[in-house]
Design a protein around this nucleic acid. Structure first.
Lengths: 355, 355
DNA sequence: ATGAAAGCGCTAACAA
DNA sequence: TTGTTAGCGCTTTCAT
C-alpha cells in the first residue's frame, strides 16, 4: 500500500486509521491521513468486503411502481440507512415479474448485502411462502407477513387494520347506516389488511357488510368504481383503500350528480400531499411512513450487528385520522314531503387542513 | 474452490461458466452447473469486483423527497438498470444537506460504482460547479447542467423549456392576454428551465411578462400563491410548474370564488396519476420519465463499457400537452351591459382523460 | 478448450 | 501501540 509507505507505517495501521480503531497514536493517525489525502486514497470497498465478509450494505426490494406509499417508504429507508452507516442497494419487483420477490431477493444476495428490506410485498403466484432458500441475513418485511424464510425475520408497518377501523368508525359515528369499501388489489397485503379492518369493524358494530368493490390503486379504477356506486342510492359512505382511488371515486360521484360530502362521504388512505387541496379536501388516514422506516431499520441494523441477541421489539404505529371535508353526516332519509337537499348541517369546505 | 473440485475442473473453468465466456464445452458446463447447484454456490461479488476492478453497479443520487418526478425517475432508472445487468446503489441528498451532491457522489465512489446518475440536481450553496474532484467514472445528469467534472458527462431529460413553451402557448392560443407563472423553487434547474421557457414564449409573442410567483412544489405553496393571485382580476391564466402546486392553486381560486376554468385557466406540469381526476381535471404537460431514464441509462452504460468510444447522442424527448378541463378561453372582457358569466363556450368537464 | 500461478486491497489473528 | 503473515474468492495472464 502506497499510503502505508508514504506514512512510514504498516498497511495494517492504515487500516486501523480508516476504521477508527483504537490504539493508534494521534501522531501516526495524522501522518496516515496526510499521506492518504496526498495520494487521493480511498478505501476499496470490494476488498474490504471480501476480507471481512461484510458488505455494509442493505438491500431493498420494492414494487416497481411510483405509488406514493412504496416511494415514500423507499425514501424513508434511504434516509435512515445512510445514518446508520450502511449503503443501499435497490431492486424492483414489477407485478407480473416472473421471478418475483424471490428473484429480487436472490439478486440482492448475489450482490452481497448484510440485510434485506422487503417493502410492501404482494402475494405471489406460486404462493408457497418459502421464497428463497433459508436466508442467512436478517430480513425486515414492511407491511405484510413474511414471504421468506430467514434466520431472523422482522415485521414493521402493521396496524393497517386499526387504521381501517378508524376510518370506518369515523363514518359510522357520523351516522351512516353502513360503509362501503373500495378495496385495493387483494394481492397486496396492505389491501387485505384494510379490507379486513373495515369488515370486522362493520361486523362488530352490527352493520351490514356490503359487497366489496375492487380497484387497482389507480384514480382510474376509483373512477370506474364510482360510476358503479353512484347508481346505488343506498350508498352514503365509502372508505377507499388509498387516496388516488378516493379522488377518482369522488370525481365519478360528482359527475353523476351525487355531491361529496352532502350525498356521499368518502374517506381515503395515505394522506398524499395533495389530499388537503383537492375538491373537496379529503378526509383520510395518514400513514407514518417515516416512522415505520426508521424504527424498522433500527431493528434490522440491530439484528445485523448483534446476530445472537434477540431482535428488538416492534411498536405499534399511531393511527392518524385526518378529518377534512369529504365526510359529513348522511343526507336525511328520504321521507315523503321533505326536501332532500339543502338543510343538512354541512361542514363548509374552509381552508384546507393540508400539511 | 469446492465447485471446481466437485466438477473435476479448474477454478478458472468455473469462472468461465459463470461469466458465459466462450470455449467451454457443453459437457463441462453441465457438470459445473450441476456441482454449483448441489453446493448452493453463488458468485461472490466482492471478490469479483476486487479482481476485475469493476463493480457492475451504478449509483444514483436523488433528492430525498417523495416528489412525483424524482420518485418516478428513480423507479424508471431501477427498471432499466436491472435489464442492463447492473446493480443499483442509491444515495439521497436532502435539501440543506451540508455535504450536498458532492457528498452523495463521494459516498457512491466510496462504495464503488462504475457509473453515476444524478437525478434532478439542485444548485448548491457554494455553487462553484466543480463538486467533486474530476471523477473517472461516467456521469449521467438528468434535468440539469452538470454539477460535476468528470471524464464523461452525459445529459438527459432536457426540453423543459420546450414543454413550458407548449403550456404557455396553449393558454395564449385560447385567447388569454398573457399568462402568469407559478414557479418552482429556483434552486432546482427543472424550475428554472420551466420559468425560462415561459418567459421567452411570452416575450416572443409580444406579451406582458407578469411578475413570477414562487412556490416550493407543494400544494400548500400553490394554495398560498392562489390566494394572492385570486385577488388580481387581471389574472386569467396561470401556468404552474408542477401539478401539486396547480391543485393547491385551483383550490385557493375556487375558495375565492374564481371558477376554473371559466374565470381562470390553469395548466400544470408532470401529469401526476390523479391529474385527470381532480376537479376540474387538470390540463398539464406529461413528462416522459420512463423514456428519459431508459435512454439516459442506455447511454451511460455505453460509456461505461466503451470508455474510449464517443458517447451516444441524446435525443429530444417529445412534448406532450394533455388538454383536460382546467383551461378555457378567458372570460369575456367586462364591458358595460354585458353579462360576465354564463355565455362562454365552456368545455364541460366530461369523462376525464386520465391514464 | 482447459489449467496454473499470481495477485486484486483489504482485514483477521496473532505477534511483538 | 504497531507489525507480520495469511488468505478472503475471484479474474488475469500466460501456458498447454
Amino acid at each position: 500500500m502506497d499510503v502505508a509507505r508514504l506514512a512510514g507505517v504498516s498497511q495494517k495501521t492504515v487500516s486501523r486509521v480508516f476504521n477508527d480503531e483504537q490504539y493508534v497514536s494521534a501522531d501516526v493517525r495524522q501522518r496516515v491521513l496526510a499521506a492518504a489525502e496526498e495520494l487521493g486514497y480511498r478505501l476499496n470497498n470490494a476488498a474490504r468486503a471480501l476480507a471481512s465478509g461484510r458488505t455494509r450494505s442493505i438491500g431493498v426490494v420494492t414494487l416497481g411502481t411510483a405509488l406514493y406509499g412504496p416511494a415514500t417508504l423507499l425514501m424513508g429507508v434511504e434516509r435512515v440507512v445512510r445514518d446508520t452507516g450502511y449503503a443501499l442497494r435497490v431492486v424492483n419487483t414489477m407485478e407480473g415479474d416472473p421471478a418475483g420477490i424471490a428473484g429480487a431477493v436472490d439478486s440482492l444476495l448475489d450482490q452481497g448485502v448484510d440485510g434485506i428490506v422487503i417493502s410492501e410485498p404482494i402475494a405471489e403466484e406460486g404462493d408457497g411462502g418459502d421464497t428463497s432458500a433459508r436466508l442467512d441475513v436478517p430480513v425486515l418485511v414492511i407491511g405484510a407477513p413474511s414471504p421468506v424464510t430467514a434466520s431472523t425475520v422482522l415485521a414493521a408497518g402493521g396496524g393497517a387494520d386499526r387504521m381501517a377501523r378508524a376510518a370506518t368508525e369515523h363514518l359510522l359515528e357520523l351516522g351512516h347506516l353502513t360503509v362501503h369499501h373500495l378495496a385495493g388489489p387483494q394481492r397486496w397485503y396492505a389491501a387485505r389488511d384494510r379490507l379486513a379492518g373495515w369488515r370486522s369493524t362493520l361486523a362488530e358494530h352490527g352493520k351490514d357488510v356490503p359487497p366489496v368493490v375492487q380497484g387497482d390503486w389507480s384514480a382510474a379504477s376509483g373512477y370506474a368504481a364510482g360510476r358503479e356506486l353512484a347508481s346505488r342510492p343506498e350508498v352514503t359512505a365509502v372508505f377507499a383503500a388509498n387516496d388516488d382511488m378516493a379522488i377518482g371515486l369522488i370525481r365519478a360521484l360528482t359527475e353523476a350528480g351525487r355531491h361529496v360530502p352532502e350525498d356521499v362521504s368518502v374517506v381515503g388512505f395515505d394522506d398524499i400531499p395533495v389530499a388537503g387541496y383537492v375538491t373537496p379536501p379529503l378526509t383520510t388516514i395518514r400513514q407514518p411512513f417515516d416512522a415505520v422506516a426508521q424504527e424498522g431499520l433500527k431493528r434490522l441494523v440491530h439484528s445485523i450487528e448483534n446476530p445472537q441477541a434477540d431482535p428488538l421489539p416492534a411498536s405499534d404505529p399511531p393511527v392518524d385520522l385526518v378529518v377534512r371535508s369529504s365526510t359529513a353526516p348522511p343526507p336525511p332519509r328520504k321521507t315523503p314531503g321533505r326536501d332532500r337537499r339543502g338543510n343538512s348541517p354541512l361542514p363548509k369546505g374552509g381552508s384546507p387542513a393540508g400539511r
